[in-house]
Design a protein around this nucleic acid. Structure first.
Lengths: 240, 240
DNA sequence: GTCCCGCCTTGATTCAAATCAAGGTTTAAT
DNA sequence: ATTAAACCTTGATTTGAATCAAGGCGGGAC
């Protein structure tokens, strides 16, 4: 294989690493070291990267596409935990424990991830305590996301849940300016993420549409009146 | 203050540290170092250790009593995230980020916790990469717990949820031997942890009682027929 | 001991969401 | 371009849990 090609590939990987939160601003040497033991993996839409309980090989960084982390509970229902998109890292927990992955990971579209193998990385970690702190930061971020998800799921009714979800995605809800939200996923999947069925989501969106709070076109939602939505959320909460 | 007393206190702290998962098996020197910057805190029942958003001073280890970590969502409802008991550590996420604590912490009884101050500990972390790995392990454990909680909360009905909860607490569910479960909390609180109301919990327990699956006396539940319960759980799940 | 407050239980009612069902629409593949 | 499959929407029905309400039990204060 031509040496040039290898170098080129390495350069791309290094670029991804540098731009990802976890390694941003790291010395070039370290980036190069990490890049040297990266294993890229390609997945077709629907392929599983790993399943719950599988021995953990390391953690991952999404380079292209999207990875859906989910859990199928004893009842067989799938609860989406998170959807990771390019430059995000996940499964860092794998580093620290011999227990298998605690959830399933599936590509929701054609996807490339970079595997950072456990043993290699741990070795580096021993020499670079700074890095360990970053890992801690990343995991604490994941914890926060999970706590946020819990919050959302426990909110009383779908109206409230959806309003809350939409507002979190409006750039400046208080400005009153219409905001366009691109779903990046099918409504069925969105419903699953919010812990409900596509029917209920559909109805709730319809309710908001009829109040002229928003418009829906395909997988694009335009929030026409963020402030109204905000107000509605507040008063829903008040009535509890 | 008499030197002896100080030494004595230090010895007790070191003992707690040694027995806690996080520091178990650590060299004596390190234990002593950590013990030297520990700040013990006493809380009366109902006192808050910290509130959501508060600047994080460090992480904690429960020495005596119990700490309830919970979240009050936008609707004002309290969702219990976890109840920490002696020798458990929590809020490790505080180390790695400047964001405040992501939840509230309240003592549910008279409690003593050991505060491990952030800056001191981070300094040590830089010199002891091993320690950082342990922290990662601990956080990954918390992640698992949270994922498990999510699982439970999303289970269809209370019958299923409760059966699942009980079975997780039977030492050997398959043995068929009756198991005694001590709640350690009021039923109202348990209901909150399971994301429901005390009325619903009461009814569900009654249902199981009528089927002679268990007996309830105060805060003690005796599961008479774990296997029956297991069977019921399976078939509940099948019917979905 | 007795009084009181908070906890638990049980019943009746209400309500939101899951489920079942069917028609219309978009997407992707041939 | 045609067709099949998946997706979305909307309606009717069912169901499980929250809520409202009231009575009983138990433990702590005095």
């Amino acid at each position: 294989m031509p040496l040039e090609a290898t170098k080129f590939r390495q350069a791309i990987v290094e670029n991804t690493l540098r731009s990802c939160q976890l390694f941003m601003g790291l010395p070039t040497v370290d980036i190069a070291t990490i890049a040297s033991f990266i294993v890229p993996k390609h997945l077709a839409k629907g392929d599983y990267l790993f399943r719950e309980g599988a021995r953990a090989e390391g953690f991952y960084i999404v380079q292209k596409g999207a990875i859906n982390i989910h859990r199928v509970n004893v009842a067989g229902k799938e609860q989406v935990i998170h959807l990771f998109r390019p430059i995000e890292s996940f499964a860092e927990a794998a580093l620290a424990t011999d227990a298998g992955y605690p959830a399933d990971a599936r590509a929701t579209e054609s996807t490339t991830v970079l595997l950072v193998p456990k043993s290699d990385f741990i070795e580096l970690l021993r020499k670079r305590p700074e890095l360990a702190l970053r890992m801690l930061g990343s995991m604490s971020q994941h914890l926060r996301v999970l706590v946020g998800l819990l919050d959302d799921l426990m909110l009383k009714d779908m109206g409230t849940r959806l309003a809350n979800w939409l507002l979190k995605r409006c750039p400046r809800p208080l400005s009153g300016a219409a905001a366009v939200i691109e779903l990046d996923r099918t409504k069925r999947v969105l419903a699953a993420e919010m812990g409900t069925t596509s029917e209920t989501l559909s109805r709730t969106l319809a309710k908001f549409r009829h109040k002229n709070l928003l418009r829906v076109k395909g997988t694009t939602i335009t929030v026409m009146k963020p402030r109204e939505l905000q107000k509605l959320l507040q008063q829903n909460l008040g009535e509890l």
